[in-house]
């Protein structure tokens, strides 16, 4: 049965689109059928981060308004056969998203794919609410920083009250993805620690993505980090998070640079 996942945060710029792309790749690499859906109508960027910006013909709004079939709007990833992207419209605004239209598209996607990953826009308005409405799971992307944690708390409240699951008396499964984490700064007391954020938000931890230059490099290239440098710490963190999403019980660690560690060990010996 298909699982619908929303990647959300409240605050902008914390890594929702990056995480959507990286997790989408990681899940698809296991052979499952995955679609990543951009809900940021008017400010679409998932296509760019996925390297599909030149292949967009139709978008989510076209499908909702009946101007295109879903199959026409879906873009198949060139690198991973089982990965597709449904882009958002760049010329419209969030009012073009209708409740019925979104429901219909989500129902169709559930039939075609194993995983439907919805990249939410920032904010708590219509776009964000519709992105989370049909979700079974939510990934709350949070930076170890006060404004991000506060906004995540607000979003968690919305996940528990305004989603289809919540309204039906059920519970949406929430997961915390801590991004841009710097273990050294946290150890020095300059950055909120993992335990601090977990204690405050009290939802289970899906993964910790370390701050890394590889993430910007990946978006420069239009190849999610799990594809562009799969051995890098952020890519390994995303890959492990994807395995946890599939139900594997893995201890959460912060991956470190493999080469860097070796280089440090042998420093001065050569």
């Amino acid at each position: 049965m298909a699982k619908v996942l929303v990647v959300t945060s409240g605050k902008g710029g914390v890594g929702k689109t990056t995480s959507t792309a990286a997790l989408g790749v990681a899940l698809a690499q296991t052979g499952q059928n995955v679609v990543v859906v951009d809900f940021d109508v008017g400010l679409r960027n998932l296509d760019l981060v996925m390297g599909a910006e030149r292949r967009v013909v139709f978008d989510l709004i076209n499908v909702i308004q009946g101007d295109a079939k879903l199959s026409q709007a879906l873009i198949r990833d060139k690198r991973i056969e089982t990965l597709s992207i449904l882009p958002a419209s760049q010329t419209r605004d969030k009012d073009a998203l209708t409740t019925e239209g979104v429901a219909s598209v989500m129902a169709q996607l559930r039939e075609k794919f194993d995983w439907v990953i919805c990249d939410s826009p920032a904010g708590i308005e219509r776009g964000a609410q519709l992105a989370m409405y049909h979700a079974d799971h939510a990934i709350v992307v949070t930076n170890p920083e006060v404004s991000s944690v506060r906004d995540s708390d607000r979003i968690i409240g919305m996940l528990d009250s305004t989603t289809e699951k919540a309204k039906g008396g059920g519970k949406i499964e929430k997961h915390l993805l801590l991004t841009r984490y710097d273990p050294a700064r946290a150890a020095r007391g300059e950055m909120l620690r993992i335990e601090d954020v977990l204690e405050i938000l009290s939802i289970p931890l899906l993964g910790i993505i370390p701050e890394s230059e590889e993430v910007l490099r990946a978006s420069n290239l239009g190849a999610p980090v799990t594809l562009s440098s799969p051995d890098s710490p952020p890519a390994r963190a995303y890959a492990e998070a994807a395995r946890r999403l599939e139900g594997e019980k893995l201890e959460v660690t912060v991956p470190v640079e493999r080469k860097g560690l070796l280089a440090r060990l042998f420093k001065g010996k050569s």
Partner: peptide
């Protein structure tokens, strides 16, 4: 992480506890 923490000790002048 706790290893790091005990190594450097929890400095009371740091900003993270204030944020928390």
């Amino acid at each position: 992480m706790s290893l790091f923490g005990s190594f450097f000790g929890r400095n009371t002048k740091t900003s993270a506890p204030v944020a928390r």
